[in-house]
């Protein structure tokens, strides 16, 4: 049933966010440390890795893939609720700090990617 997939997804998300909050607490940080990332790893564990994984039939799996497909529309809604006015009207310090940080980070992507092992090396 579709709800099994949706329920698994929701369970992984709640468990991940909880773990992220505990991790933040342990580190003395007022933030969720990697909660969503942990949730993703949990979902992968339960659907691909665990030897005792619950087998999601195609209909149950569609409960997960539906939300994965809703990703772009949700991101569009997310864009439409950003505080763009505050970003644009904040003055040069903030705009420069944000912009230069992005440009430098972009520039580093290919540099660091070179150090990561490539798929072709596998054979």
């Amino acid at each position: 049933m579709v709800i099994y997939g949706v329920g698994l997804l929701a369970g992984c998300m709640l468990a991940g966010l909880w773990a992220g909050r505990l991790l933040g607490h342990a580190l003395g940080v007022e933030a969720n440390v990697g909660g969503v990332g942990i949730a993703m790893l949990l979902l992968l564990f339960f659907t691909q890795i665990s030897p005792k994984r619950p087998v999601l039939g195609p209909i149950s799996a569609s409960g997960v893939s539906f939300w994965s497909a809703m990703y772009i529309p949700i991101v569009v809604a997310m864009a439409a609720k950003q505080n763009v006015v505050a970003a644009v009207s904040s003055g040069w310090v903030a705009i420069l700090a944000g912009t230069l940080a992005v440009l430098a980070s972009f520039a580093l992507v290919p540099v660091l990617a070179k150090w990561a092992p490539k798929a072709e090396d596998d054979a």
Binding site: C12, M40, L41, I74, A80
Partner: peptide
């Protein structure tokens, strides 16, 4: 729009994208 684009749905959809990810990668 604020609900659909809020952190809850955003994170839910992001977690769902992991379903198609390759563990090897």
């Amino acid at each position: 729009i604020g609900v659909l684009g809020g952190a809850m749905f955003r994170d839910f959809a992001i977690v769902a994208t992991a379903f198609g990810a390759e563990v090897r990668e």
